[in-house]
């Protein structure tokens, strides 16, 4: 007797959001929002030291987007 194996697929919607994804997205949100909206040299100072506060590379680079998005500047 020939056995027939029937495979069925069950697709269901799972609403639970993985914790690792939540953590990644919250970190990206925090860093990106701070970098574009508020950084005055703090991020690059982690590598450059105090020189970063004078240079404010990120601030100057994202300057136009900062103004355009409504963040306070200057």
């Amino acid at each position: 007797m020939k056995m027939t194996k029937v495979l069925q697929q069950l697709t269901k919607s799972q609403g639970k959001v993985p914790k690792v994804a939540v953590a990644v997205l919250l970190v990206l949100f925090g860093i990106g929002f701070f970098a574009v909206g508020f950084d005055q040299g703090q991020i690059f100072s982690l590598v450059q030291g105090h020189q970063a506060y004078g240079q404010m590379y990120l601030h100057e680079m994202t300057h136009d987007m900062r103004h355009a998005s409504g963040f306070p500047c200057h």
Partner: peptide, 10 residues
């Protein structure tokens, strides 16, 4: 140019 990069970051 930074405005485009800033747009991507934001």
């Amino acid at each position: 140019q930074g405005s485009i990069i800033g747009g991507a970051m934001l």
